[in-house]
Design a protein around this nucleic acid. Structure first.
Lengths: 157, 157
DNA sequence: GCTGAAATTCGACCTCG
DNA sequence: CGAGGTCGAATTTCAGC
């Protein structure tokens, strides 16, 4: 699907404030409220916008500690197997397979360091996990609102 | 600030769908629309909810490649210095200082592998960066909607 | 992009413990 | 006084046109 400048601007506005009214977005991108709504509906339909979510301060909910855990897996473990297994641990908020020595990298949130330790122990107990290597987050420097580069359009230049 | 069950349920509903109406949320948590709005306003005021954002499919916008980059910095580099420097690179969507050998871990999004390479080169050129170690993401297994553990209340047990 | 009907937001006011 | 419910006006959504 092809996204033009207007689509990107609308997405940018919604990433900044998902509860903005169509009129507000329209004013910003130079379109009527109706036109904005039609485009937003189309962008959702097309899967470019997958939903809307609240940004939460994890510490306000008691999640004060985060860590990254590298997983070293047994020879023929499939990414799907890893995915299914780590999905059973709700503290894992993001997981992916990666190049390099480790097979997967997990991002976990916990209530404190002891909780982190227990989660790592539980994950290390998964049959295919050979070894783990973890790093506790000391201070967060950047946390982009979305999974998309900040205020940018793709320009590989 | 103290969050009760109702607050957590409301936050849960908003994390799932930030554009849900107050009436819909109220139905789900057992409150009138007005009561929900009052609590949401209070939660934003208190900073527990920091905003609302659209969830975007990065590939739809052309961001098809992601990578994690470990930064090894010169002896007395402060986290703040790292933060300021990496914030200049829009491809860095998340960054934090961590325990372990590396000093910081960056998550970057790019249009392709060549773009990743260029970004790493630019970051490696920062004066305080001694060395980098990067991993390209092969496949994403989990991507939680929010920075908060999935469908969970903190229960370190 | 405009228009009008339906739905939602949002403040005011009232009630309860 | 804090927290919830109800009501009505203003705003927003949304489906034609």
């Amino acid at each position: 699907m092809e996204l033009d400048r207007l689509d990107r601007d609308i997405i940018g506005a919604l990433v900044e404030d998902a509860r903005a009214t169509y009129a507000e977005i329209g004013q910003r991108v130079g379109l009527s409220a109706s036109a904005v709504k039609r485009r937003v509906d189309r962008l959702r339909e097309a899967g470019a916008i997958t939903g809307f979510t609240a940004r939460v301060e994890p510490s306000a909910l008691g999640w004060t500690t985060e860590a990254y855990v590298e997983l070293f897996c047994a020879g023929k473990t499939s990414p799907a197997d890893i995915g299914v297994a780590v999905a059973r641990h709700p503290e894992v908020i993001s997981a992916c397979t990666i190049t390099g020595e480790a097979d997967a990298l997990l991002h976990i949130r916990a209530t404190d360091v002891r909780h982190v330790e227990r989660v790592i122990e539980r994950i290390a107990a998964e049959p295919f996990v050979v070894r783990t290597k973890s790093s506790i987050v000391l201070s967060r420097l950047i946390d982009a609102p979305s999974a998309t580069p900040r205020n940018e359009s793709p320009s590989p230049a």
